[in-house]
C-alpha cells in the first residue's frame, strides 16, 4: 500500500548553457503515515524532485517519469487540476517561514485564507478553525495570536503558523523542505517533535527533506540518500544507520561529528559533479574510495529489498556495523 509512488522521474532545467540535470531517475514510495527522510547535500536534487512533482519547478523545468499519488499521475497534470491537489492532498513547508508568510496580513487572515481555499465545505466559521489549528501546532494563547503579524512572532512560531496553514486542507502528505534549518537549535528540535506528533495523530505521511542525517535519525521511519540526482541508498532508518552499504552514505556518517567526540572526521574528498555532465557510470565514482573499473563504465542497478543500495562494491555489512 503506497500513497505516493514515484517512478523513474527525471527533472532537467533549460539553461543558457544547456540542460542542467537535477534529478536523474528516481524511484521512491511513501506509505500512508510514514515519515520518510530524504537526505542529500546542496545540489543533490532533493528539493527539485518534489517541486517538480507538484508542478512548482517553474516553466524551464522538463519533467519525465511518473508520480502516482493515490492513483493519479501528478506529472503532466494541468495547473488547474494540480492546484486542487496542492494544499488539500499534498502540502509543502519551506525552509524560511518569514519569506513564506505575508508580512502585511495578520496570522488569522492568512490562516482563514488557507482554510477557505482548501476546505470543500466551509463548515465552522473560519476563526474557530484557525484557532484550533494554532492550538494543534502548539502556539500559546492562539486567540490572541490570530491578530498578530508575522514580525511579532519568532521564527519558530512563524514556522508553526506555516505548518498550521499547511494542515488547513487536512492533507495526506506533507513535504517539509528543510523546515528547521533556519531556526535555532532548541526550536529545531521542537519543530521536529511537532511534525512527528502531528504525523502520528493524523496518520499523515511526511517527506522530510534535509541535509542533516541527525534530523533523520531523530524522527524518520525510512531514509533515502540522494547524490547527484539519484537515490543511492534507501531503507528503514535502523537498518541504514546500523549498516550503511553505499560508500557515500557511509562517508556522510563518518564526516559528521558526534559519533566519536575525539576521533578524526573523515571528509569525502572531491566535489559534487556538475549538473551539466552526464556521467556514464556511478556519479559518486570519482570521489569513491571503493571504486572499481565497472563503476565508471555503467550505472549500478539497485539491489532489491527493503534496504537497498546502488553500488557495485558496497561496504560490507559487518564492517559498517
Amino acid at each position: 500500500m503506497t500513497l505516493l509512488s514515484i517512478e523513474n522521474l527525471t527533472v532537467s532545467f533549460d539553461t543558457p548553457h544547456g540542460a542542467a540535470h537535477a534529478v536523474r531517475g528516481i524511484d521512491l514510495a511513501v506509505a500512508p503515515g510514514e515519515i520518510l527522510g530524504l537526505v542529500g547535500e546542496s545540489g543533490s536534487g532533493k528539493s527539485a524532485l518534489f517541486l517538480a512533482t507538484l508542478g512548482l519547478a517553474g516553466p524551464r523545468a522538463r519533467v519525465r517519469g511518473s508520480a502516482l499519488f493515490d492513483g493519479t499521475d501528478l506529472v503532466g497534470l494541468s495547473d488547474r487540476v494540480l492546484s486542487r491537489i496542492r494544499g488539500r492532498r499534498v502540502s509543502m513547508v519551506f525552509q524560511d517561514p518569514a519569506s513564506s508568510l505575508n508580512p502585511v496580513m495578520t496570522i488569522g487572515r492568512q490562516l482563514d485564507e488557507a482554510i477557505r481555499l482548501n476546505r470543500q465545505n466551509p463548515g465552522r466559521p473560519g476563526s474557530a478553525a484557525a484557532r484550533d489549528l494554532l492550538a494543534e501546532v502548539g502556539i500559546p494563547d492562539p486567540g490572541r495570536r490570530l491578530r498578530s503579524y508575522p514580525h511579532e512572532l519568532s521564527g519558530g512560531q512563524n514556522q508553526r503558523v506555516m505548518i498550521a496553514m499547511m494542515l488547513a486542507g487536512n492533507p495526506d502528505l506533507l513535504i517539509a523542505d528543510e523546515p528547521n534549518t533556519a531556526l535555532d537549535v532548541t526550536v529545531q528540535a521542537q519543530i521536529l517533535d511537532l511534525l512527528k506528533r502531528i504525523s502520528r495523530a493524523r496518520g499523515m505521511s511526511i517527506v522530510l527533506i534535509s541535509h542533516d542525517l541527525g534530523v533523520v535519525a531523530q524522527i524518520c521511519d525510512t531514509v533515502a540518500v540522494m547524490y547527484a540526482g539519484r537515490i543511492v541508498e534507501s531503507g528503514p532508518v535502523m537498518d541504514v544507520f546500523d549498516a550503511p552499504r553505499h560508500p557515500y552514505t557511509a562517508g556522510l556518517m563518518a564526516s559528521r561529528p558526534g559519533t566519536a567526540p575525539a576521533g578524526r572526521l573523515m571528509p569525502i574528498g572531491g566535489v559534487v559533479p556538475s549538473p551539466f555532465e552526464q556521467p556514464a557510470g556511478c556519479a559518486f565514482a570519482p570521489r569513491c574510495p571503493r571504486r572499481r573499473a565497472a563503476c565508471t563504465a555503467m550505472p549500478p542497478t539497485p539491489v532489491a529489498g527493503g534496504h537497498w543500495w546502488r553500488c557495485f562494491n558496497p561496504v560490507e555489512a559487518a564492517a559498517a556495523a
Binding site: 532548541t186 517533535d193 534530523v215 535519525a217 531523530q218 559528521r256 558526534g258
Partner: peptide, 25 residues
C-alpha cells in the same frame, strides 16, 4: 541541559525527546 538535549542524534537508537523550553528568548 536544554541545548545539549537538542543535538540531533548520530543514530536513531540514541534519539530522545528534547527538553522542552517554554516560550522564546
Amino acid at each position: 541541559k536544554a541545548l545539549t538535549s537538542a543535538i540531533p542524534p548520530s543514530h536513531p537508537r540514541l534519539a530522545k525527546p528534547p527538553v522542552r523550553l517554554p516560550g522564546e528568548p
